[in-house]
Design a protein around this nucleic acid. Structure first.
Lengths: 108, 108
DNA sequence: TCCTTATATAAGTATTTGCTTATATATAAT
DNA sequence: ATTATATATAAGCAAATACTTATATAAGGA
């Protein structure tokens, strides 16, 4: 693993909001709309963070209708494996069970 | 290990010049003057990078006359252990054997 | 003491970053 | 076709970053 790739992945991970995104995704797939609630920043800001993580090869996406589900890629570099192990999980952002306010347990 | 400390250490490590500094220190103690040659940036720039790594608890220092020897702290966090493992070693910066142009194998 | 050397700090600046609001794109529903 | 929803992209801006040069500090030697 080259130092320039290490730099790219470290830069992608070195932000508290993106650390929280990664923490959420440790629980499974998450939608952009859920992240907005979790981080308290705008939807475009979330999109930009996710793009940075995607460009570093850390996450990938899946389109479901108008939604987009993001998740950690399966084959992480040794560097990212170590980092992801250390990131503390975040509750309240599990897309599997309550994605995009669909499923009947939302009050909107 | 809290996510805010993780952020601090990731931010400290997420720079190619600082990655090179860490790579050098994997070989042992290094002086500021040696880093200047290795990185090709000014001495104050090196000092500032080293301060950032020190403030993140990643490195420590030892004063020897007018020189200052920097080295990795012994008790690294699990996060930094993983990162340091992945950083590729850099040759030409081993302070133990050729520190600050002292030792007779310099041509100045 | 004065001068030199090694390093740190200060101040200034260009670049990068992380947000914002506004707009574009894509899908679904009416 | 029109409208609504979810996400992405564009543009602009404030804050952070990484350098520079100039200066301060500290130790050693003449």
């Amino acid at each position: 693993m080259e130092n320039t790739l290490i730099e790219k992945q470290l830069k992608a991970a070195a932000d508290l909001n993106r650390i929280k995104l990664l923490a959420c995704m440790k629980n499974g797939e998450v939608c952009v709309c859920d992240f907005v609630d979790v981080l308290g920043i705008s939807q475009p800001a979330v999109s930009q963070h996710l793009r940075k993580l995607k460009e570093a090869g850390i996450i990938t996406e899946r389109k479901v209708g108008t939604w987009k589900h993001y998740r950690l890629v399966e084959e992480q570099t040794p560097l990212m494996k170590g980092i992801l192990e250390q990131i503390q999980p975040l509750t309240g952002c599990n897309c599997e069970t309550d994605c995009c306010h669909v499923g009947g347990n939302s009050n909107e």
